[in-house]
Design a protein around this nucleic acid. Structure first.
Lengths: 318, 318
DNA sequence: CTGTTAGCGCGTTCAA
DNA sequence: TTGAACGCGCTAACAG
């Protein structure tokens, strides 16, 4: 009866008073490195799907790859008593930041490795991914293969780079430092990589980029330079960004990039489920969990057989 | 002195206790219709830029175009004492939802119109945009122009549709209902529109789509059907999504879409500034503010002169 | 500058 | 079922 009257009067119980009293807010903070990179919203949707079904509200914050913002936002969320924190592709961090999380609520890392063994991690199988790509290219006859790395402060970038070198060694292909180009997951980084390749005067038959945007930037620069893809040089991406959704941007004169598909949504749902388990205490705090999601190779139109000779207007082989 | 000790002990003051006491949380809730559509993150960045500089924390929530989620999330944010609410492209709403906002904190609508005159609004100049597009196409000799609308529950969609018809009438071009196709801002919607055009057996020389994704979907379908763009049919987009960021997805065999550029970031910063003014009470609550942001035409490669005769394999003229 | 006190709106407990 | 009292951690107001 009283409840009815209350409702008529438009009464709403205060979530913050309840949170203050119970020390639980039924909210989860999600920190994302760059909200304009389409793979992250997709991961967030997966997280949201799992957690909002259980009555948790997600607060999404964009750190813009900025360590200061990262610290400030994590602080703010912790001070607002979020019950948990999910860090999607956050930068490797200062001791100060790690200390903050140490005393904080349960924390799950997605996509980039946690610095702290107490925290959970979910990510794609980068080793398998690189193996698939190298297999594909080597099978096409490529030996001089370049690599465009991701941002230097990303654990994913160093992982992929590491596995790339390992896969080459496994096959007895010498690793040449001049074949490595520093990228940053943007198209511009891919263009710079192409410019460096020209500058260094090296002759590659294939290049693996750390994500699709780098690959597209590289392709764009190569085409502007008069090269044909994949006839002159094969290029691979990573993420399968095109499959993310119904949206598509920045058309280029190619049909599709050979790339690695990773299930962004599954990364999110797994992270959400891990969080639920941390929240209900059904797993010991000292027992870190890891989930590694398998990936798949998507062969499209940017990879082909390696050319026998030099690929860029040098002397023709006899 | 005491402060130092407190810091050493890792003391953090509780934002929720403060919020309970002061009735101000220094946080702003932002509801977004679809976080995977790249125009929204860009708007959010603009909002964030302004508000976080003033010490406000932004909580971003994704409503997924779902009215139930929209209501639940707005409720949750209000119950958590957000100081303000920014609704980006929210669906036209139930009375229940409007009632909720009525008693809630200051509220600013972005991109889609508020149902309630007490609320502020910031959006692009859709009239000017449509005028620019129609001018461009008519100047190229087009008279039979189709239109792919946006989602039916979007005020932006109906505005654009309305202005389109007005611009045609202004120029004495008859408005034909068969030239209107129901879209939904996705590439798939654009493809369906093309299929409908074929089904209806009508012969258009140009089609205006309500956003870039619809345009790209339409173009894709047209090309698969053997048509050339813009030789057989001109197509325009809306938003200039390609200019959004460094990222690009889903390459198509065209270089760039003729479209309307709207400054997503500026929509965001304006919304942020409006919110600041509401928060410091420097504007009377009864005085709704509106900001209409000018747009610009970006002529690229998907529009060209109208063909004299039928565009699709009918009898040749003359 | 420091100490004391009251109360924000809840959930919890104990009493009726 | 209902009521009264207490405290979550903070701010504001006032006292020393």
């Amino acid at each position: 009866m009283i409840e009815e009257v209350a409702r008529k009067l438009g009464y709403r119980s205060s979530a913050i008073a309840r949170a203050l009293r119970t020390q639980r807010s039924r909210s989860i903070g999600v920190l994302v490195a760059d909200i304009t990179n389409p793979i992250f919203p997709q991961i967030v949707k997966g997280i949201d799907e799992v957690l909002s079904a259980e009555g948790h509200t997600i607060f999404l914050c964009n750190t813009d790859e900025n360590p200061k913002r990262q610290y400030a936002l994590a602080s703010s969320l912790i001070d607002r008593n979020v019950d948990g924190l999910i860090l999607v592709s956050q930068n490797l961090q200062s001791d100060e930041f790690n200390k903050l999380l140490e005393d904080g609520p349960p924390c799950i890392y997605v996509n980039r490795r946690p610095p702290n063994p107490h925290h959970d991690y979910v990510g794609s199988d980068n080793r398998q991914a690189i193996e698939l790509l190298v297999d594909h290219l080597v099978g096409l006859g490529h030996r001089r293969i370049g690599f465009v790395t991701g941002s230097s402060n990303s654990s994913t970038a160093s992982e992929r780079r590491h596995h790339f070198q390992q896969e080459l060694e496994k096959r007895g292909i010498p690793v040449d430092e001049r074949y490595m180009f520093q990228g940053d997951y943007t198209a511009e980084g891919g263009r710079r990589a192409f410019a460096q390749m020209i500058e260094r005067g090296i002759d590659l038959t294939a290049v693996m980029a750390s994500n699709d945007f780098s690959a597209l930037g590289f392709i764009d620069a190569a085409q502007n330079h008069g090269l044909s893809i994949p006839e002159d040089i094969s290029v691979t991406g990573f993420d399968d960004t095109a499959g993310v959704n119904n949206f598509m941007t920045y058309p280029l004169p190619i049909k599709g990039v050979t790339t690695i598909f990773q299930s962004k949504r599954e990364l999110g749902t797994l992270a959400g489920q891990m969080m639920l388990r941390r929240l209900d205490g059904s797993v010991s705090p000292q027992e870190p969990r890891q989930a590694i999601v398998p990936v798949a190779l998507r062969i499209r139109d940017t990879t082909g057989p390696a050319k026998a000779g030099p690929s860029m207007g040098s002397v023709a082989t006899g």
